[in-house]
């Protein structure tokens, strides 16, 4: 019994102190860590694929007007599965290594991406033009769009 207590003591004391100084010193996660997502609204084409695969349904797509599509990310519900980043065809969604997401203001965990889109003449649905010039051509000539269906 004494022997095993000694062995235990050796295990314990051999390890030394392992407490990390975090949060007083930074402690970066491993490479490839799935942290808070970032959205580059420039790259987004508003396809909504991310919202489709999002398990916790924290990505909400709304079309406030015919040529605007708003993607809202309510990240306080995010489960950090990174499926949105995986399915994004334009790599507009990227996963950062940020894990310190505690906040007093829920707005910190909201991302809003507005995508200006063309709307189809026939069905009224938004679509993304291939170039900015095309977009200007679609929206510019039509003037202020009427409210969608």
């Amino acid at each position: 019994m004494i022997l095993s207590k000694l062995k235990e003591a050796i295990i314990c004391l051999g390890a030394g102190r392992v407490t990390l100084p975090y949060p007083f010193a930074p402690h970066p996660p491993a490479e490839g860590f799935r942290g808070k997502v970032e959205v580059d609204s420039e790259k987004c084409i508003g396809c909504g694929g991310c919202a489709n695969v999002c398990t916790p349904r924290c990505i909400v797509v709304t079309d406030p007007s015919q040529d605007t599509r708003v993607l809202e990310f309510f990240l306080e519900r995010c489960t950090y599965c990174a499926r949105c980043a995986e399915v994004c065809p334009e790599e507009a969604i990227t996963v950062t290594e940020q894990f310190e997401t505690a906040t007093n203001d829920t707005q910190d965990m909201h991302i809003k991406a507005e995508v200006y889109m063309g709307s189809c003449q026939r069905c009224g649905r938004c679509f993304e033009t291939s170039t900015a010039l095309d977009k200007l051509m679609v929206t510019g000539f039509q003037g202020v769009p009427e409210s969608g269906e």
Partner: peptide
């Protein structure tokens, strides 16, 4: 203080600060 010392010893054995 004696209790504090004992807690510290415990922490050392636990590999804690």
């Amino acid at each position: 203080l004696a209790e504090g010392v004992m807690r510290r010893i415990r922490a050392i054995v636990h590999s804690r600060k």
